[in-house]
């Protein structure tokens, strides 16, 4: 389990990194935190001709409030996000989900951009980005574009990133201060990838539900936004029955696979359970925040 040989570049400027990417195209891998890529290299499941290590591109590492948005540089470590007061205050869902990403020594290195670009559908960050309607800034030599999280994820480990593009920034619009959020997941062991995870952000008062956003991880080729389940809450208001119906709807919306840890049936069942739990806890959190 030793990596195969590769050309190695450690640019210090984004332009330099993009130029290298342009040069190698598909043959190169961008090395960010490395917590997913390094195992693939060690297992020799990946043979890139070049690694473009962006860890020294300091301009990609920041976390700041700008206008109504929290903007996070792609190279920002999960650990930094975990201990950020700004994130705790403005993006409590991201804060909570971060503590579920592997373990602290993994989060020391793991980056937000890397996690999103890797696009493991069972990971927490893609579901959070989806449920918070995050925008991702994709930079290519001489230009950039911005895509929504919903557009970004294409399939298992696949995104809309072109071979010459790098994720440089993730933009979050904080949920209204009257809302509550929750990330519920079931994993076999503490720190494992979730069998199923459900993220929810709900803005409700009494039975009236202004907005509801729900997304599930681990139950399809991408994280899945549970829009018709959301609609049930907004249209029917939040009652025990509507929560139950939304949860049951969520289980219909997902497309899980079976693997050695859980069957598709069980994942569907867990989607229902966790959706209900996520809604209930988000509502509770909202009540606490408003109180």
């Amino acid at each position: 389990m030793k990596p195969p040989p590769f050309a190695y570049h450690a640019p210090t400027q984004l332009d330099e990194a993009l130029a290298l990417l342009e040069r190698y195209g598909d043959d190169a891998k961008v090395l960010a935190g490395g917590q997913s890529l390094m195992p693939l290299l060690n297992f020799r499941l990946s043979y890139p001709s070049a690694l473009i290590d962006i860890n020294r591109v300091a301009e990609l590492s920041y976390l700041r409030q700008e206008n109504d948005q929290v903007r996070i540089g792609a190279l920002t470590r999960q650990r930094t996000i975990e201990f950020s007061e700004l994130v705790r205050r403005q993006l409590p869902l991201l804060s909570e989900a971060t503590t579920l990403v592997g373990h602290l020594p993994i989060r020391t290195r793991g980056t937000i951009g890397g996690s999103l670009a890797h696009a493991d559908p069972a990971a927490e960050y893609p579901a959070v980005a989806l449920v918070l309607d995050a925008e991702l800034v994709l930079q290519r030599p001489g230009g950039q574009r911005s895509v929504s999280a919903e557009e970004f994820f294409v399939s298992y480990l696949t995104t809309v990133l072109a071979p010459n593009e790098i994720v440089t920034e993730i933009r979050f619009s904080p949920a209204p201060p009257t809302s509550g959020c929750a990330f519920e997941e079931v994993a076999r062991r503490h720190g494992d990838f979730a069998l199923v995870g459900v993220a929810g952000v709900i803005d409700a008062e009494g039975e009236q539900c202004r907005t509801a956003r729900l997304a599930a991880a681990g139950v399809g080729p991408t994280p899945i936004r549970l829009r018709t389940a959301e609609d049930i809450l907004v249209q029917e208001g939040v009652t025990e029955q509507s929560i139950q119906r939304a949860a049951a709807k969520a289980a219909e919306l997902v497309e899980p696979d079976s693997d050695i840890h859980a069957s598709a049936d069980f994942r569907r069942h867990l989607t229902e359970v966790l959706t209900r739990r996520a809604i209930q806890r988000a509502l509770e959190r909202g009540r606490e925040r408003r109180a």
Binding site: M1, Y8, G34, M38, P39, N42, L104, P105, T108, R109
Partner: peptide, 23 residues
């Protein structure tokens, strides 16, 4: 060598990290 067991954990600039997942 895939970041699960943690036996290689060291401090890098004061923070714990896997030394098997870094070059």
């Amino acid at each position: 060598e895939h970041g699960i067991c943690g036996a290689c954990t060291i401090l890098i600039n004061g923070e714990a990290a896997r030394s098997c997942l870094m070059l």
